[in-house]
Design a protein around this nucleic acid. Structure first.
Lengths: 343, 343
DNA sequence: CTCATATATGTAAGCACTTACATTTTGTGT
DNA sequence: ACACAAAATGTAAGTGCTTACATATATGAG
């Protein structure tokens, strides 16, 4: 087996306690011996055994990230940022992709808990369920360790949230579109999560503020695959074929927005004149559109950074906000018309 | 603190050794006592302490995944598959995003080793460097634990590779394009990794097999951001403005392929008649193109599955192939013309 | 120069588990 | 009923580290 603290202590001519102190940057070690010990460690390529360490400290400096599907464009980015910021704070990341079924989420959470991670991050609003009982696993976990929620809002002791005010972002997006003259707005969404609901209510509020009518058939739920652009285009086509008339589409994510742009082309519509489109997330997909998709940037990097910052504070027993709420920003590109100054 | 093996042994009226045996599914435990112990565990919600366990067994059933950038569309998918297959085999995943600098890769590897992971997966060909000395960290690691390489080929004891025969895929793609009548083929690439080199050599070989000339200016390296589609389009535009004439573009990844499609539109070219395009990876981006991008599918899911399968075999001291090589498959969509039957 | 105090180092008892080895129980053939 | 092997269970010694407490050494005030 590899070197132990005993080997080092022997070679350095000190006790194991001193070696341990050096390892933990304890004070009360003279600079001379500290250096000697460090030299010996270096010379012998010593690495402390994390298990033994964890046994004593009951922490592994590791955070569990739960994520439904880390291959999703948006979640992948989130995981990436989270991992980076965690590492900057000397924490490791155990990744756990749960899929979308409540049952698996619960299982995955239990697994992380059994690994004695120091905290858990729930990445994405799909970890919050409609039926309150399904959220029991979060409350249970929060009794043992801090639970951080990205893009979701949950009230419970030891649960902290960072999210974007999607409602407000959507109010803003809707009003911007209306101001540019597109008043028959079709809203497309594909998820009924908390965040999805906030967006929907934002669109409705935006329409109401603009004094426009709110018709249920103008809020359409796309239930198909998140990766099948074709199917999304067909979905929009069907709506149009069904007699729905619209000159603006607001989409709950960029994939749907991209589909809207594709639909417009196939229908021979001119973007943004005949049809304006706004997406959500400001992801790579927005730049893949032709013309490029206007999209709401929901500050993912800032969200992640703040989330980790808050988490570290909690772990250090410092006080930290229970909720950190950011504002989204509409990035206007080729699929929207800037509103005329005089309207 | 939580329950220990002692609490369970006491409540069940057996010794700790017996409890431990139940925990490890050892034989030599009567069915009666096994059940009794399991019941007590269940009733008290006992979970074994992983640290103590790791100390004894010197394994944590955890695999480290090194990945330059888990937010990259392709790598994200790889990480997702790997994590899923690992979990199916009761292994956890520590994710470590390294960025692209050799220095960081080395550091990250050391970090994983110090965590006593049971194996390491290098995800993507960018972990292999031109300068052989820069690959020393892989050889060092392989002395301690199995190293699995995804999409890279490296000869060393205890290093196992799974990759797609990119050379062959590109030969195939090139010949298909030539057969459809597009003979002035521009090859665009953006990475000089081992996999990048295999692709390039495949394109060249494909041209040669078709009896076409190979001109260096028809193999262009795009050195810009991997996420900036605009910049890619501008890059192609510049080449065309510079007098390069081509009626086919083969791209080393789908982002470049998508840029080529965008370029064609902005240049008023008709796809695939005036310009045929083939991408690589068959990612979501291929479906985002309009028309949809023909692309080489390099069997990522199969690669990942096989990689994990091989890894598990190695960990169980079974023999396993040093290299598993797959063939890519060209998925033809709207950006290529199927070759005429009589040509 | 002494004694009190601060600083540096050492000793030894955990931490929760695994497992070789010892001991007891059970089962089988005679 | 007895001897003997096999099966079941228990005992105790690691596993590598942290840390409270004990001890030794250095520092400084009087």
């Amino acid at each position: 087996m590899s070197l132990t603290i005993y080997d080092i202590s022997e070679k350095a001519g000190v006790s194991i306690a001193t070696v341990s102190r050096v390892l933990n940057n304890s004070n009360n070690v003279s600079e001379k011996t500290r250096q000697k010990v460090l030299d010996v460690m270096e010379a012998n390529g010593y690495t402390p055994n994390v298990f033994a360490r964890g046994l004593g400290l009951d922490t592994m400096k590791t955070i569990g990230i739960l994520c439904a599907d880390s291959s999703d464009l948006y979640l992948a980015k989130a995981v990436y940022y989270l991992e980076r910021f965690l590492r900057q704070n000397s924490y490791d990341t155990i990744l756990c992709c749960t899929g979308y079924e409540p049952e698996y989420k619960k299982k995955s959470m239990e697994l992380l808990l059994s690994k004695r991670v120091d905290g858990v991050i729930l990445c994405g609003s799909n970890f919050l369920h409609e039926i309150d009982e399904d959220n029991e696993y979060i409350r249970q976990a929060a009794k043992q360790l801090p639970v951080m929620m990205l893009n979701a809002d949950f009230d419970y002791e030891n649960v902290y949230s960072c999210f974007c005010d999607d409602h407000r972002s959507m109010v803003n997006a809707t009003r911007t579109m209306v101001a540019s003259g597109h008043k028959d707005i079709l809203y497309l969404y594909n998820s009924d999560t908390a965040s999805g609901k906030r967006k929907l209510s934002g669109v409705i509020a935006g329409l109401e503020m603009a004094g426009l009518p709110v018709h249920a058939e103008y809020q359409q739920f796309y239930g198909g695959s998140h990766e099948n652009i074709d199917e999304m285009v067909a979905f929009i086509q069907e709506l149009a074929d069904g007699g729905l008339t619209f000159n603006g589409i607001i989409a709950a994510d960029d994939a749907l927005g991209l589909a809207a742009v594709k639909y417009a082309r196939s229908a021979g519509l001119c973007i943004p004149k005949d049809l304006a489109v706004i997406g959500y997330n400001n992801s790579l997909l927005a730049k893949c559109c032709d013309p490029e998709l206007s999209s709401v940037d929901n500050q993912l990097e800032n969200l992640c950074q703040t989330l980790i910052h808050n988490l570290i504070q909690v772990l250090n027993d410092e006080t930290t906000p229970q909720k950190s709420i950011f504002n989204g920003e509409l990035i206007e590109r080729g699929t929207t018309l800037s509103p005329k100054a005089d309207s």
